[in-house]
C-alpha cells in the first residue's frame, strides 16, 4: 500500500469508517511496514496531545446565560401548552363528515363496480342459455306434416289437380242433400 493510502486507511479506521477488506489490507501493511506503524503511533500521539492541549474552561456567565435560555425555552413551551385553546366543535366535526363521505363514496364505488361486473354476465347467460319452452304435443301436427309432405311431393311432380277437390263430387253431394230434405218434408221432386 502507498503511504498516502495507509494514512487514509488509518484515519478512516480511527473514525470507524473503514471497510472490512481495507481493514485487512491495512493490518497486513502494519505488520510488514515500519513506516506504517510509525504513522499509526504518530497519529495516536497527535490525538492524545491535542486532547490535552487547552484548558477549555468557559466563564460562569456564559454557562448561566445558556441555562437561563434553556429555562425560558421550557417556560415558553409550557405557556403555549396552557394557552392553547381547545379545538372548536367545527374542527372536530368537519373531519368526521369528511371521513363519513369518503366511506360512503367507497361503499357506493364498490357496489357500482360489482354491478358493472355482473351485468355482462347476465347478458351472456341470456344469449348462451335461452329459456326452455315446453310446447304441448298437438296430434294434428302429424297430419298437417303428412299433408304438407304430400303437397310438396305432388308439387314437385307438377300434378296439381290430384289434390284439388273435384267439382263433380261437390254437385253430387248437393243433390243428395236436397233430395233428403224434400223426403223429410214429404215432397217428391
Amino acid at each position: 500500500m502507498k503511504r498516502e493510502t495507509i494514512e487514509k486507511c488509518l484515519l478512516l479506521e480511527q473514525s470507524g469508517e473503514l471497510g472490512a477488506l481495507m481493514k485487512w489490507r491495512l493490518h497486513r501493511a502494519l505488520r510488514h511496514s515500519v513506516e506504517a506503524r510509525a504513522m499509526q503511533v504518530e497519529l495516536e500521539q497527535i490525538m492524545s496531545a491535542q486532547s490535552s492541549a487547552d484548558e477549555l474552561e468557559i466563564s460562569g456567565f456564559t454557562v448561566s446565560r445558556i441555562m437561563d435560555e434553556g429555562a425560558r425555552v421550557l417556560d415558553r413551551r409550557e405557556a403555549v401548552k396552557k394557552h392553547a385553546r381547545p379545538l372548536p366543535f367545527f374542527s372536530l366535526w368537519r373531519p368526521a363528515v369528511v371521513y363519513a363521505a369518503a366511506a360512503l363514496l367507497l361503499v357506493v364505488g364498490i357496489s357500482y363496480m360489482t354491478f358493472l361486473r355482473d351485468v355482462p354476465q347476465i347478458a351472456d347467460n341470456d344469449i348462451s342459455q335461452p329459456e326452455e319452452t315446453f310446447v304441448e304435443w298437438n296430434g294434428d301436427f302429424d297430419e298437417q306434416i303428412t299433408e304438407l309432405d304430400t303437397m310438396l311431393a305432388l308439387a314437385s311432380e307438377g300434378d296439381w289437380e290430384a289434390w284439388e277437390p273435384k267439382a263433380q263430387d261437390t254437385a253430387d253431394d248437393s243433390e243428395s242433400i236436397a233430395r233428403e230434405l224434400l223426403l223429410l218434408e214429404g215432397e217428391q221432386i
Binding site: 500521539q45 497527535i46 496531545a49 491535542q50 490535552s52 492541549a53 487547552d54
Partner: peptide
Amino acid sequence: GRELGGKIG
C-alpha cells in the same frame, strides 16, 4: 507534559 500539545495547538 503539555509542551507537545502546545506545539500542536
